[in-house]
Amino acid sequence: MIRRFDLAGLVIAAALVFFILLPVLTVFIWAFAEQWFYPSLLPTKWGLRFWSKVLERPDVWSAFWTSMKITTLVTGLSALICLPAAYAFARMEFPGRQAFMMSFLMATAFPRFAITISLAVLFLVFNLVGTVTGVVIVQLLTTLLLMIWLPTAAFRGVSRNMEEAARDVGAGPLRVFWSITLPQALPSIAAAVLMTFVWTFYETEGAWLVGAPRITTMPILMMQMINNQMVVQYGAVLSVLLWVPSLAALLLARRVLGSDTFAKGLGA
């Protein structure tokens, strides 16, 4: 059978390549370019000179460790707060449950920039501006929605009979949660944790509004380099560098969970 030539599919694919892959590719090429003058399609001189230059800078390394520290803290705290809450939303009946979920959604739909500004003003009063604590709190707030909604759906998807069967053979409530509920919900939870990690790593508004000028995370450093320096390569190299941890995390997740369960966790 001859497959029909699908023009629409080709057009969409071409558009995706043009708007997504091409810009990414440009950044990549810039990262490995030592000289690239206007009329030529490709760099006139390739090389890793700017890589060593970027990696020699102490501010890059300190920003990297600051980012890792804050991101790990935010993800860990978020899991600690949100996973029990998600379980409560999924399994327990309490008055105002629906209303709370809705208000939560509405608050998250509110323009984040406005909320962040008002938080920054509030943080001035508490002396939290320019501190790790301040950045962690502001970024934590942005993760709550994802870390509650996705695991709530996951916990709700765990068959009640499975939990009852575990109670039946002698497991107490905590044991049931640990041995049955959590493993059953794990693919979705892992996906949520991973996405939280990646999003937090790249979070800029909060980190900038609350953290500046003392806290410099990787994305902030990248912004500064792009804004303040005439050398394009610094920004490009840093972009590629920033791409590494998120790609590693995603690949790891795929390996651990298998692409099927991972996609399921993301709602596919």
């Binding site: 068959s159 499975m162 009852e164 069967a165 109670r167 039946d168 497991a171």
Partner: peptide, 20 residues
């Protein structure tokens, strides 16, 4: 008495095997 402390065992319609 909660189910984990009862001398009963239940087989569910959905069999409820732990798939992991």
């Amino acid at each position: 008495v909660p189910p984990d402390k009862r001398p009963t065992a239940m087989v569910f319609q959905s069999h409820a095997l732990w798939t992991h």
